[in-house]
Computed example of a mutant assay.
Amino acid sequence: MSENNEEQPLNLEVPDHLSYSEEHVWVDESVSPALVGITEYAANQMGELVFVDLPEPGTRVEAGDEIVELESAKAVQPLICPVSGTVRYVNHEAADDPSVITNDPYGEGWILKIELDDDEPDLLTADEYAKLAK
């Protein structure tokens, strides 16, 4: 294991096609069911994840619910769901190897797929989120 104690510049990836919550969760509404995951900023803050507690598919969630527990050596942090709907799929690979979330938060590290309710979620654009994360 290499030691890298240098401060990383805040040059975070914030994909334009995603929407974001102030709690550092992204939503990809371009697919159905919508993908949900944590942002690169959140992954960096948490450090290497060691455990992810996922809900069962079929679970009904409301925006603001704590639906996933993320555990790292640093902290235990809930994922605050930014949207309302029904969990259709969970990422079992991320549960089996939580480092996939840390290493690829916008790709293989997705956490949930949620069938969204019809109401419009109150989310930030990539530009708005990038300003918040600085």
Score class of each variant (00 low, 15 high):
S2I: 01
E3S: 13
E3I: 13
E3K: 12
N5T: 10
N5K: 10
N5E: 10
N5S: 09
E6Y: 08
E7Q: 12
E7Y: 09
Q8T: 15
Q8C: 10
P9A: 14
L10D: 11
L10W: 07
N11M: 12
L12G: 01
E13M: 00
V14K: 03
V14E: 01
P15M: 08
D16L: 04
H17P: 00
L18M: 01
S19L: 10
S21I: 11
E23W: 06
V25N: 02
V25A: 02
W26G: 00
W26P: 00
W26T: 01
W26H: 01
V27F: 07
V27Q: 02
D28E: 07
E29W: 01
S30R: 12
S30P: 01
S30K: 11
S30G: 07
V31P: 02
V31L: 14
A34F: 10
L35Q: 12
L35E: 13
V36N: 04
V36S: 07
G37S: 05
G37Y: 07
E40T: 06
E40F: 09
E40Y: 09
Y41L: 09
Y41M: 13
A42F: 14
A43S: 11
A43V: 08
N44A: 14
N44W: 13
Q45A: 15
M46T: 09
G47P: 04
G47Q: 10
E48A: 10
L49S: 00
F51Y: 15
L54F: 01
P55S: 09
P55F: 07
P55W: 10
E56S: 10
E56C: 03
T59N: 09
R60L: 10
E62T: 13
E62Q: 15
E62N: 14
E66R: 14
E66A: 14
E66V: 05
I67K: 01
V68A: 08
V68W: 08
E69K: 08
E69H: 05
K74A: 11
K74N: 04
A75I: 12
Q77H: 08
Q77W: 15
P78R: 07
P78D: 12
I80H: 05
I80E: 06
I80L: 09
C81A: 13
P82K: 12
P82G: 11
V83P: 07
G85N: 03
T86V: 09
V87E: 12
V87Y: 09
R88P: 02
Y89G: 02
V90H: 02
N91P: 02
H92R: 15
H92P: 04
E93F: 05
E93A: 15
E93Q: 14
A94R: 05
A95G: 03
A95F: 02
A95M: 06
D96A: 15
D96Q: 13
D97K: 03
P98L: 12
P98D: 10
I101A: 05
T102Q: 02
D104Y: 03
G107K: 03
W110I: 06
W110F: 10
I111Y: 04
K113P: 00
K113Q: 00
E115M: 08
D118A: 11
D118E: 13
E120A: 12
E120P: 01
P121D: 14
D122L: 07
L124Q: 05
T125R: 11
T125H: 08
T125N: 08
A126Q: 07
A126I: 14
D127N: 13
Y129W: 14
A130S: 15
K131G: 06
K131N: 14
L132R: 12
A133Y: 04
